[in-house]
Protein backbone atom coordinates (compact mmCIF):
# COMPACT_ATOMS: atom_id res chain seq x y z
CA UNK A 1 0.00 0.00 0.00
CA UNK A 2 1.35 3.41 -0.94
CA UNK A 3 1.94 6.01 1.73
CA UNK A 4 -0.60 8.46 0.42
CA UNK A 5 -3.21 5.79 0.02
CA UNK A 6 -2.68 4.55 3.54
CA UNK A 7 -2.86 8.04 5.00
CA UNK A 8 -6.45 8.34 3.84
CA UNK A 9 -7.38 5.20 5.67
CA UNK A 10 -6.55 6.34 9.17
CA UNK A 11 -7.03 9.39 11.27
CA UNK A 12 -3.58 10.92 11.55
CA UNK A 13 -3.45 14.67 11.95
CA UNK A 14 -0.55 16.86 10.98
CA UNK A 15 0.45 19.84 13.09
CA UNK A 16 -0.95 23.19 12.14
CA UNK A 17 -2.49 26.27 13.73
CA UNK A 18 -6.10 27.03 14.24
CA UNK A 19 -7.75 23.68 14.63
CA UNK A 20 -10.49 25.50 16.46
CA UNK A 21 -10.71 28.13 13.74
CA UNK A 22 -9.78 31.77 14.32
CA UNK A 23 -10.50 31.57 18.02
CA UNK A 24 -10.11 35.32 18.28
CA UNK A 25 -13.80 35.45 17.41
CA UNK A 26 -14.55 33.83 20.78
CA UNK A 27 -13.53 37.06 22.58
CA UNK A 28 -16.00 39.12 24.49
CA UNK A 29 -13.31 41.26 26.08
CA UNK A 30 -10.06 42.28 24.47
CA UNK A 31 -6.76 42.74 26.32
CA UNK A 32 -5.17 46.10 25.73
CA UNK A 33 -1.62 46.72 26.95
CA UNK A 34 -0.82 50.13 28.36
CA UNK A 35 2.76 50.34 27.16
CA UNK A 36 3.55 53.14 29.58
CA UNK A 37 2.96 50.78 32.46
CA UNK A 38 4.33 47.58 30.88
CA UNK A 39 7.47 46.61 32.81
CA UNK A 40 9.74 45.40 29.96
CA UNK A 41 8.78 48.45 27.94
CA UNK A 42 9.44 50.78 30.85
CA UNK A 43 12.75 49.15 31.66
CA UNK A 44 13.51 48.60 27.97
CA UNK A 45 14.93 45.18 28.77
CA UNK A 46 13.76 41.64 29.07
CA UNK A 47 11.74 41.47 32.26
CA UNK A 48 8.46 40.34 33.74
CA UNK A 49 6.71 38.61 30.76
CA UNK A 50 4.01 37.22 33.04
CA UNK A 51 1.54 37.79 30.21
CA UNK A 52 3.61 35.53 27.98
CA UNK A 53 4.10 32.89 30.65
CA UNK A 54 0.53 32.48 31.74
CA UNK A 55 -1.20 32.73 28.38
CA UNK A 56 -3.05 29.43 27.81
CA UNK A 57 -3.14 29.95 24.06
CA UNK A 58 0.41 31.04 23.19
CA UNK A 59 -0.84 34.31 21.75
CA UNK A 60 1.46 36.72 23.63
CA UNK A 61 5.01 37.19 22.41
CA UNK A 62 8.06 37.38 24.66
CA UNK A 63 9.10 40.67 23.13
CA UNK A 64 9.42 44.33 24.01
CA UNK A 65 6.65 45.27 23.86
CA UNK A 66 4.69 42.04 24.17
CA UNK A 67 2.43 41.60 21.16
CA UNK A 68 -0.89 39.81 21.26
CA UNK A 69 -2.05 37.71 18.32
CA UNK A 70 -5.69 38.68 18.08
CA UNK A 71 -6.41 36.06 15.44
CA UNK A 72 -6.34 33.49 18.20
CA UNK A 73 -6.59 35.37 21.53
CA UNK A 74 -9.73 34.05 23.23
CA UNK A 75 -9.88 36.99 25.61
CA UNK A 76 -9.69 35.03 28.84
CA UNK A 77 -8.15 37.92 30.73
CA UNK A 78 -5.52 35.89 32.55
CA UNK A 79 -2.81 38.24 31.23
CA UNK A 80 -4.67 41.23 32.63
CA UNK A 81 -5.18 39.50 35.96
CA UNK A 82 -1.55 38.38 36.25
CA UNK A 83 0.14 41.56 35.04
CA UNK A 84 1.96 42.82 38.16
CA UNK A 85 1.88 46.37 36.84
CA UNK A 86 -1.80 46.35 36.04
CA UNK A 87 -0.84 47.37 32.53
CA UNK A 88 -3.37 45.22 30.75
CA UNK A 89 -7.03 46.04 30.76
CA UNK A 90 -9.86 44.07 29.27
CA UNK A 91 -12.01 46.26 27.12
CA UNK A 92 -15.23 45.49 25.37
CA UNK A 93 -14.57 43.79 22.07
CA UNK A 94 -16.68 46.39 20.29
CA UNK A 95 -14.25 49.15 21.31
CA UNK A 96 -12.28 50.24 18.25
CA UNK A 97 -8.61 49.25 18.23
CA UNK A 98 -6.35 52.29 18.62
CA UNK A 99 -3.44 52.22 16.24
CA UNK A 100 -0.04 52.10 17.84
CA UNK A 101 -1.24 50.73 21.15
Amino acid sequence: MKTREFADKISRSEPGPGDGGNTGSWRVLRPVINLEACIPVKLNKKACFNCWLYCPDCVVSKTIPPVINFDYCKGCGICAEECPAGAISMVDESTPIEEGK
Binding site: G16, G18, C58, N69, C76, I78
Partner: peptide
Protein backbone atom coordinates in the same frame (compact mmCIF):
# COMPACT_ATOMS: atom_id res chain seq x y z
CA UNK B 1 12.77 31.56 35.47
CA UNK B 2 10.46 33.37 33.10
CA UNK B 3 13.46 35.00 31.52
CA UNK B 4 15.38 31.84 30.74
CA UNK B 5 12.35 29.71 29.92
CA UNK B 6 12.58 28.63 26.30
CA UNK B 7 10.54 30.51 23.74
CA UNK B 8 10.10 27.33 21.71
CA UNK B 9 6.43 26.51 21.57
CA UNK B 10 5.19 23.06 20.67
CA UNK B 11 1.52 24.00 20.71
CA UNK B 12 -0.12 26.00 17.97
CA UNK B 13 -2.54 28.79 18.84
CA UNK B 14 -6.20 28.40 18.06
CA UNK B 15 -6.98 25.21 19.91
CA UNK B 16 -10.46 24.10 20.85
CA UNK B 17 -9.72 24.43 24.56
CA UNK B 18 -12.10 26.62 26.54
CA UNK B 19 -11.23 30.23 27.20
CA UNK B 20 -8.94 30.47 30.23
CA UNK B 21 -8.30 26.69 30.23
CA UNK B 22 -5.93 25.55 32.96
CA UNK B 23 -5.00 22.46 30.99
CA UNK B 24 -3.84 24.63 28.10
CA UNK B 25 -1.25 26.17 30.41
Amino acid sequence: TILNLTEDEFVHSGTRACTGCGLSI
